[in-house]
């Protein structure tokens, strides 16, 4: 997957977590929390969705890497670059 694919996948995960949210304006640099009002419960869901969809296990001490789109894509790129997009 390219960084672009990974970004798309994260958007898809956010859409499933918050179906009513308009994500077209989402910016890559600021934290998700400031833009989306995700609480810690929702945050856990990003981690669990990645596990569900791609079997990616993220250790708790690395959760902070998922704070914004930019940092998430950077963190996931080496892990996901050889994976195919889930359909």
């Amino acid at each position: 997957m390219t960084p672009g694919d990974i970004r798309e996948e994260i958007i898809d995960i956010l859409e499933s977590i918050a179906p009513d949210e308009d994500l077209s304006e989402l910016q890559d640099a600021p934290n998700f929390r400031d833009q989306l009002e995700l609480d810690s419960m929702d945050f856990l869901d990003i981690v669990m969705e990645l596990r569900k969809r791609y079997r990616i296990q993220i250790p708790e001490e690395e959760y902070e890497q998922l704070a914004s789109m930019q940092s998430t894509v950077a963190y996931l790129e080496p892990i996901m670059k050889d994976m195919a997009k889930a359909s």
Binding site: S16, I17, A18, P19, D20, L36, M41, D42
Partner: peptide, 20 residues
């Protein structure tokens, strides 16, 4: 109301993957 992101209703809708 729809669009409100805080509070138990918004949270449970998100967690159970329902639209408002």
């Amino acid at each position: 109301p729809k669009g409100e992101k805080k509070g138990p209703l918004a949270r449970l809708l998100r967690q159970l993957r329902f639209r408002w």
